[in-house]
Amino acid sequence: MTNLSIILLLSLAFSLSVVFAADPSTLQDFCVTNPIGQVCKDPKHVDANDFFFSGLHTAGNTTNPAGSKVTPVFASQLPGLNTLGISLARIDIAPWGVNPPHSHPRATEILTVLEGTLEVGFITSNPENRHFTKVLQKGDVFVFPIGLIHYQRNIGYGNAVAIAALSSQNPGAITIGNAVFGATPEISSGVLSKAFLLDKSTVNYLQTKF
């Protein structure tokens, strides 16, 4: 193979890697979720309400053990978001409540505090497991990289409100405690006791809580 051929092949490989790394084109203006099972709603039957959501002015109910409530606006709530690669959520947290450690497997999150004082943080992947944390006030912004475990806690004396924007129409959420101790069917207590260095009775107790 000549040097020219090698250069051409390398150039082609690089070009393809760039193409595959980019977000796919929708090839159309929009693809509103169709409730009757087709891929996209017929554009002739789309109207402004397909791109509209109302309700983020209403505070979420935080009377639960965590003291927080997330109100999502994903493609399932706002059909016009389908294929657009974005979504958002309102987060309400009562004083000393917490949005528990969780991750979004398909999205980076950027959080803006609207009211209150939040302690936020995220943890990097193994083996470093670095903990980045910051106290945020009204108007502050913080970003949580895609897939990393993160949390928010209200350390003020009034209710805290934040808006989270996410880089996916369906970011997913894996809450660590629920996933590990509330799996169905449950994870063996033998596995969990070794993984978390706990005795089996403690694991069994935690499983009843989740």
Results as ranks from 00 to 15, higher is better:
69 K>R: 14
62 T>C: 11
205 Y>T: 15
17 S>N: 11
204 N>M: 12
210 F>Q: 11
12 L>S: 12
115 E>H: 08
90 R>T: 00
152 Q>V: 01
76 S>K: 14
115 E>F: 02
30 F>E: 03
14 F>I: 12
29 D>G: 14
157 Y>G: 12
60 G>P: 05
43 P>A: 05
98 V>D: 05
174 I>E: 05
118 L>A: 08
59 A>V: 11
125 S>P: 02
117 T>L: 09
178 N>V: 10
134 K>I: 05
101 P>E: 01
163 I>P: 03
68 S>V: 03
170 N>A: 07
14 F>T: 12
106 R>I: 06
108 T>V: 12
31 C>M: 07
36 I>S: 15
187 I>G: 00
50 D>H: 13
77 Q>A: 09
96 W>V: 02
157 Y>N: 15
37 G>M: 07
46 V>N: 11
78 L>V: 01
160 A>H: 07
43 P>I: 06
119 E>Y: 11
126 N>L: 07
50 D>Y: 07
105 P>T: 05
178 N>W: 03
176 I>P: 00
61 N>M: 05
42 D>F: 07
121 G>R: 06
119 E>N: 13
210 F>D: 01
203 V>F: 09
125 S>L: 11
168 S>L: 06
163 I>F: 09
10 L>V: 14
49 N>T: 15
101 P>K: 00
167 S>L: 03
161 V>Q: 10
31 C>L: 11
162 A>H: 02
205 Y>E: 14
87 S>F: 02
100 P>N: 08
75 A>C: 00
6 I>V: 15
148 L>A: 05
79 P>D: 06
204 N>G: 01
110 I>H: 02
187 I>A: 04
103 S>R: 12
4 L>V: 14
58 T>G: 01
143 V>E: 06
117 T>D: 11
19 V>R: 13
160 A>T: 10
151 Y>V: 04
80 G>P: 04
160 A>Y: 03
128 E>Y: 12
157 Y>Q: 15
130 R>T: 12
135 V>K: 10
160 A>R: 04
35 P>H: 05
183 A>H: 09
5 S>L: 14
149 I>C: 05
64 N>G: 06
124 T>G: 09
16 L>T: 03
47 D>H: 13
99 N>F: 07
69 K>F: 13
162 A>S: 12
1 M>Q: 10
8 L>K: 15
123 I>C: 04
139 G>S: 09
118 L>C: 06
